[in-house]
C-alpha cells in the first residue's frame, strides 16, 4: 500500500514528528511504500540543517534524512510555510526538498492513505 504522511509540527516541541517517523519505519518494515512525507505549518522546522540537539538526544532532522536516503522517501517542505519561518535552501538539511503545497495534494491523490501528525 502507498502511504502519504503530513507533519504539521516542528521537532522536539511536539511528539508529532517522532510518531510520524516511527509510523514510517513500521510501514516500510511491512513492505509498504511511503510515497511522500510533506512538512507543513511548523512542521517545516524538521528540515533545518541548523538543528543541534544534545549528544544524548535523538537527532530528528538527521534521522529523517537517513530514512529518505535508505528508502528513497520523498521529503517535501512547503515553500510558503518554510519562508515564513526562515527555512531556505541555504539551511535545508540533507534529504529534504522545498516545493509547493501542490505536492501535498498530489500525494493525497496518489497515495492509498494520507496520515496526518500534528498537535
Amino acid at each position: 500500500m502507498k502511504f502519504a504522511i503530513l507533519i504539521n509540527e516542528g521537532p522536539y516541541q511536539h511528539q508529532a514528528s517522532d510518531s510520524a517517523y516511527l509510523f514510517c519505519k513500521a510501514a516500510l518494515a511491512k513492505g509498504h511504500e511511503i510515497r511522500r512525507v510533506f512538512f507543513y505549518h511548523d512542521g517545516v522546522n524538521n528540515s533545518s540543517a541548523l538543528t543541534e540537539p544534545p549528544q544524548d538526544d535523538r537527532n530528528i532532522v538527521v534521522r529523517w534524512g537517513k530514512l529518505a536516503e535508505e528508502h528513497k522517501v520523498d521529503l517535501v517542505v512547503c515553500v510558503a510555510a518554510a519562508l515564513r519561518r526562515g527555512i531556505k535552501d541555504d539551511n535545508l538539511a540533507a534529504g529534504f526538498r522545498i516545493s509547493g503545497l501542490g505536492q501535498l495534494v498530489e500525494a493525497g491523490i496518489e497515495a492509498d492513505r494520507l496520515v496526518t501528525f500534528g498537535d
Binding site: L22, F23, A26, H32, R113
Partner: peptide, 11 residues
Amino acid sequence: VDYAGFVDLVA
C-alpha cells in the same frame, strides 16, 4: 497495538 499495528489499522 504497536506501530506495526498502527500501520495495519490505517491499511
